[in-house]
Write a protein that binds this DNA or RNA. Structure first.
Lengths: 359, 359
DNA sequence: CATTATTCTTGGATCGATTCAAATTTCCGC
DNA sequence: GCGGAAATTTGAATCGATCCAAGAATAATG
């Protein structure tokens, strides 16, 4: 790479200062890292020399190797880096992580495992003390990659079973039951489910035989919770359309088209993410259907956007920021143990749900 | 029998693998970093040994010292780390930076210079190849701190003059003139300005003699642009109240109280940030004043929130993401030169401005 | 003033890799 | 089986610091 402005090549090292000041490198080091044990006269002389030579202070690169600790947490995902700043869920989570890091003075390094080996800065090469993983998609690969690094890590939003890794999750079954019960109590009897992916890159109406087969446990558990509760209201869950989406606009809208194409369209939608619920509200409104007068919707996650949209979204709120905080602390206070925490969720009733329309 | 420190299994080093496989460090190193130059048989043997011993691969810490390059950009601010995820302006900027980093495979490290020396991970110790600085507040200190590190850096949103550092800014005068002209053309004649800070931690109505004295050039330039254009409409700028805020809720609302306490309240507000403009809309609405029927407002920045609020905000849009992208590239392609770029801005007319009410 | 206690300073070892010139092997054609 | 080119491997040097046991200098005490 190009050398700094000056023609002179190498930056000044601690050893150069030591030589110029006529002390050993040990003493020179102490001047910067433990000044109190150096005699004042010497300390001042060395500092003066350093100043005069334009020494930038002990290089963290060298210090790191010796100390072994970076003092930073890596946050990894398979999405591109901009995901951290654009996705509402990620943003709230990151804010929580930030708070814990601020409190202890640790730094945050963002890592994308999008195209793996190709990147100069990736899970394998990131200079961090541990990882927090957003296992949105491609979770298994991300976990595998990170495991090889042999650093402490916590998996969040993890969608698959693996008892050997630390993770912080939520009670998906309880959450989806809350959602379904809420709608059931409002009198709804015709439902549709907008589902998160069963496996990567698969979308479409889910056939009955695939219903129990979701690879991702989050999907499976939420579906189970919905159905469990719907059954209690006497609903035949085999008749409830479940549309698998990629949690983005195109497939979600395709799902809505499909769901509302039938003769008896649902009066209530159970969406496995706020993202989908928000898209659904937009789609329904554009189509002239009123929320919640014609169709009620319950989301899942509890992102801030849900409170701001029109109508405000009824949802199952995760303690997103708290999860972030705990994850960060897990890495910061790592003690070698595998920790698994399940956080509670709560139903937040806003205006996207109302009584079932009278037929 | 067992080695002295049995409990603390020291992580396996490359040298351990080399010894176990019966090759030199040089060869062992090549197996991982330049496998093509190692004979296949040897390569496989070494890899097998590494696998068997549970070697995590070459430690980036060691590699770093040798290579000298971290492959990551540090983004610094005087705010807490959560600022990056909570502030709309910062988020869009970070998304731009992320895109440039994704494209080249670089990583991002977040650095807060909030309480300086105290933190384990700060401007002095962050492992990065260069810095992008958000000079929101305490800019001078942040720049000074970073300068000492002697790494390439770019200052963004910088509010003060210093020709010796690289920066990317916007044409503040042109932007504020656009805002003022827009309102002037709509027939407004009674104005008020919600100003960014003149100096840190100062708020309140600005006395005429202080008007030209803002330490921050962004504030000074925007004010100059407003006044220049207002004069062309024959407005006596000495009579235009300018209220200095901290760009947050409390002082902005205090400013509004003051501004609207007079006998002849303004029909148009020039806000130096969208943040303030949004707060103003909320405040006015709560007070029963209609925007834009009673009062028109023009913001500054062009954050996404401005398009979503009610009414949508007319504003001077900066190319925020593009600034982020350029800043990242400046660091990534650093060549030792000081670069200073000024980006254009544009007036985005939405619904927060309308014709002046008839008196 | 000698002796002991105390405070500083020294220089080698270490952290974990990569690099490169030199030494060694292997490969070929004859 | 030999000479020389090509392919591999070696091992010392380097990156930039911190740590620590041991030695040197200074201060305190009898």
């Amino acid at each position: 790479m190009a050398s700094p402005i000056e023609g002179q090549a190498r930056p000044i090292r601690l050893a150069d200062i030591a030589k110029a000041a006529g002390v050993s490198h040990g003493t020179a080091s102490n001047v910067f890292s433990r000044p109190e044990i150096v005699r004042q006269e010497v300390r001042e002389r060395v500092k003066a020399v350093a100043e005069a030579m334009g020494y930038a202070g002990p290089d963290p690169k060298g210090r790191l190797l010796r100390a072994g600790k970076v003092n930073a947490i890596g946050v990894g995902t398979t999405e591109p880096l901009s995901y951290f700043f654009e996705d509402p869920f990620a943003r709230v989570m990151m804010a929580g992580i930030s708070q814990a890091c601020d409190a202890t003075g640790a730094g945050i390094a963002l890592v994308s495992a999008q195209n793996d080996e190709k990147l100069a800065w990736n899970i394998q090469s990131a200079l961090v003390d541990g990882f927090i993983l957003f296992c949105i998609e491609g979770g298994p690969r991300l976990v595998e990659l990170t495991r090889e690094r042999r650093l402490p890590f916590v998996a969040l939003a993890i969608g698959f079973d693996d008892d050997t890794i630390s993770m912080i999750g939520i009670d998906n079954v309880a959450g989806s039951r809350l959602a379904a019960r809420h709608l059931g109590e409002l009198g709804h009897r015709r439902f549709a489910v907008l589902s998160l992916p069963f496996v990567d890159d698969s979308t479409g109406l889910v056939t009955p035989e695939r219903l129990g087969t979701a690879l991702y446990t989050a999907t499976r558990d939420r579906l189970a919770g919905y159905f469990e509760e719907l059954s209690r209201f006497g609903i035949d869950t085999n008749k409830v359309p479940v549309y698998e989406t990629g949690n983005e606009e195109t497939s979600t809208k395709a799902g809505l088209e499909t769901i509302f194409a039938g003769a008896e369209p649902p009066t209530a939608i159970l969406a496995m993410s706020d993202r989908m619920a928000l898209i659904a509200i937009e789609w329904l409104t554009a189509r002239g259907l009123k929320v919640p007068e014609d169709v009620s919707i319950v989301g899942f996650d509890g992102v801030p956007e849900g409170a701001l949209c029109d109508p405000p979204l009824t949802t199952i709120a995760q303690p997103i920021a708290e999860i972030g905080r705990r994850a960060a602390r897990m890495i910061l206070d790592y003690d070698g143990a595998v920790r698994r925490e399940t956080m509670g969720v709560e139903l937040v009733v806003r205006a996207s749900t109302g009584p079932a329309p009278r037929t």
